[in-house]
């Protein structure tokens, strides 16, 4: 799974701490997701996507292999 977290944060001018505050999750979780060390739960994915006002699949991108 690839994430566009860094790119979207840069677009909206948010750092990890600010994104975490807005999504009401921890900064550690944002950092783990960005480093591809943790696949977020549905709830966290929705919270993050809501902050960027994007559909989930625009923020978290799965490869064809992962979905087949």
């Amino acid at each position: 799974m690839k994430t566009r977290l860094k790119e979207l944060r840069a677009r909206d001018g948010l750092n990890q701490t600010e994104l975490a505050k807005r999504a009401r999750i921890s900064r550690q979780t944002v950092s783990l997701i960005e480093r591809n060390e943790y696949m977020p739960s549905l709830l966290i994915a929705v919270k993050i996507a809501n902050v960027f006002q994007e559909p989930i699949n625009n923020v978290f991108i799965f490869s064809e292999e992962e979905l087949s």
């Binding site: 999750i25 921890s26 550690q28 979780t29 944002v30 783990l32 943790y38 977020p40 709830l43 966290i44």
Partner: peptide, 9 residues
């Protein structure tokens, strides 16, 4: 109180 990422760690 911990979110899923923290629980994973």
């Amino acid at each position: 109180q911990f979110d899923d990422g923290e629980k994973y760690v």
